[in-house]
Design a protein around this nucleic acid. Structure first.
Length: 549
DNA sequence: AATACGTTGGCCCG
DNA sequence: CGGGCCAACGTATT
């Protein structure tokens, strides 16, 4: 369908079509790419590409979902797309959903729809850096204008890195000093779009509606519990208003003071999944928080305040963007080289919530069912897996989180695993979270454990954090025999954490000695030495134990 | 070279 | 529940 001449004016060249390519940024408010695409175009094609690599069911994965994403996050994404489609329809448009390898689909669309202007939000993740370069190269050869604004984050990570002489800052404080106020903050953001151009002729394309889980091939048996958090911009804005309505709460927010065991009403905003998919603009959130701060006497500050939380996100985006191999230990210049153990049995016990430590296991069950846990709960299980107890590789834990979290974000997830494993940013490896007493101080009755581990629901509170210490009569009465109905601890925290401290000390010393340049062989020989010493020490302990008894 | 400081540890004390 | 101690790291600043 060609536009009739009467519709045209000087800003609207004949038949000019733009394409807004949605990936993250699944929103109408504060969406510069959408706004630009809708300006001076006769037609606008709003496109989302369903990438089979991300969306197709993988029956071999360790949890329901695709190869890359658990089913909760896939559903969250589909809900977000549904909501976006609805919002576009209210503006007289709609979301076009196509399936296939994104660059192939996109290039075909650009050709067949004769697109003159391609708009998509700039993305710093390595996956999109590679994909977007491919698309930009094609567009420049084809003479298509590309508009790719920075709007997922408050700052452009490249700017901060440049300000710091080409390297990203490695501490939060130095990041704050460099960052200052965001450049856009002086004027209000565009949060309302009144109308957008109509969708043009879609030619030979089979456009589908936003698919359901079932249509994607997911078989739901009704057994698995999916996340209670609904996706989409509308829900994001509703949650935002709800959080902002309590001005005192916003003003006094201090992250470390939240209760990780709160599950009826989480101690934080739970806006992270909406920021991850861009259902909520981080810039709009920032603007709203500043407005609240203006109207109260005093408020908390970074790093603990709510604005501080947004800046943590920026910090990790910046370091991740400026650090080659950020998601690996090997070849990552800011990552300590540590001889982590490799033990699939222990890894599976952690992943599946059967370490025998109820606090740890309940958190892992919440991860699997809800795709979300409180920040401090994440700390506990990450510390337990790596430097605290099991001494397993942070990359393995990262993979589990990346798959199961509905808010998993490449930069933030990797950054936090580097942090918690004392591989980067944070180095006080003596500070280890106790898998028993940490949870107890927030939730002495163990309600959180009882909810996510119902097998322990009748265990008296005296034993619920350490059920293996309960007398058999108590276990019988609680209908939960340790070792049969619920596992015994896979390690003893006292000795395991001591071992971890020792190994971390040795590994740090080696990194220092070799100035951070640690080879595979260096790690191998350190691992051998640690195991020998550890073996000797353990044998010595058993010997002494014998002599005592 | 010396110093301050770091989003949120555990434990014991009063 | 706040304070002091434990044992102690690296980064950034001076």
């Amino acid at each position: 369908m060609k536009p009739s001449l009467s519709l045209l004016n000087s800003n609207m060249p004949s038949g000019s079509a733009s394409l807004i390519w949605f990936r993250k940024g699944l929103r109408i408010h504060d969406n510069p790419a959408l706004e630009y695409a809708s300006r001076a175009s006769a037609f606008m094609y709003p496109l989302f590409v369903i990438d089979p690599h991300y969306m197709e069911p993988d029956p071999n994965a360790f949890s329901p979902g695709s190869t890359r994403a658990g089913i909760s996050r896939i559903r969250f994404l589909l809900e977000s797309l549904e909501d976006l489609d609805l919002s576009l329809k209210k503006l007289g448009s709609r979301l076009l959903v196509l399936k296939g390898e994104p660059s192939e689909v996109l290039i075909r669309c650009l050709k067949e729809w004769d697109v003159k202007k391609l708009c998509f939000e700039y993305d710093t993740d390595p996956y999109y850096q590679a994909l977007d370069n491919k698309i930009k190269n094609y567009a420049s050869l084809a003479g298509i204008e590309v508009f790719s604004p920075v709007s997922h984050t408050l700052f452009n990570p490249a700017d901060i890195i440049e300000k710091n002489g080409g390297r990203p800052p490695l501490s939060y404080q130095s990041f704050l000093t460099l960052a200052g106020e965001p450049s856009w903050a002086s004027s209000p953001l565009l949060v309302e779009l009144s109308s957008v151009p109509p969708v043009g002729d879609v030619a030979s394309f089979e456009i589908s509606q936003v698919p359901t889980l079932k249509e994607l091939g997911y078989v739901q048996n009704g057994q698995e519990e999916l996340t209670p958090f609904r996706g989409g911009e509308s829900e994001a804005l509703r949650r935002l208003r709800e959080s902002l309505s309590d001005k005192e709460w916003v003003a006094n927010f201090e992250k470390p003071k939240g209760d990780p065991s709160a599950y009826i009403k989480p101690a934080t905003t739970v806006l992270s999944p909406y920021l991850k998919f861009g259902c909520l603009s981080s810039r709009y959130f920032y603007q709203c928080l500043k407005d609240v701060y203006k109207n109260v006497k005093r408020h908390t500050s970074p790093p603990v305040s709510l604005v501080g939380q947004l800046l943590w996100r920026e910090f990790f985006y910046t370091v991740a963007f400026g650090t080659p191999n950020f998601d690996k230990m090997n070849g990552n210049r800011i990552c300590k080289q540590i001889p982590w153990n490799d033990d699939d049995e222990l890894l599976a016990a952690w992943r599946e919530g059967r370490t025998g430590y109820p606090w740890i296991d309940a958190i892992m069950v919440q991860l699997r069912k809800w795709g979300w846990m409180h920040h401090l709960a994440r700390h506990c299980v990450a510390c337990f897996l790596t430097r605290g107890d099991l001494f397993l590789h942070w990359e393995k834990g990262r993979d589990v989180f990346e798959r199961l979290l509905i808010d998993s974000d490449w930069a933030i997830n990797n950054g936090n695993w580097l942090w918690l494993s004392c591989s980067s940013f944070f180095y006080q490896y003596n500070r280890i979270y106790s898998p028993t007493s940490f949870g107890k101080k927030y939730d002495p009755n163990g309600n959180y454990i009882r909810l996510f581990l119902p097998i322990l629901k009748d265990m008296p509170k005296e034993y619920i954090y350490e059920p293996w210490t309960a007398p058999l009569s108590v276990q019988n009465k609680a209908k939960c025999i340790i070792g049969r109905d619920y596992p015994k601890p896979v390690v003893s925290h006292d000795s395991a954490s001591k071992e971890c401290r020792r190994k971390m000390g040795e590994a740090y010393a080696l990194n220092k000695k070799l100035n951070g340049v640690v080879s595979e062989d260096d790690l191998k020989s350190l691992r051998r030495r640690l195991d020998e010493d550890g073996g000797q020490e353990a044998r010595g302990r058993r010997q002494r134990q014998k002599l005592i008894s």
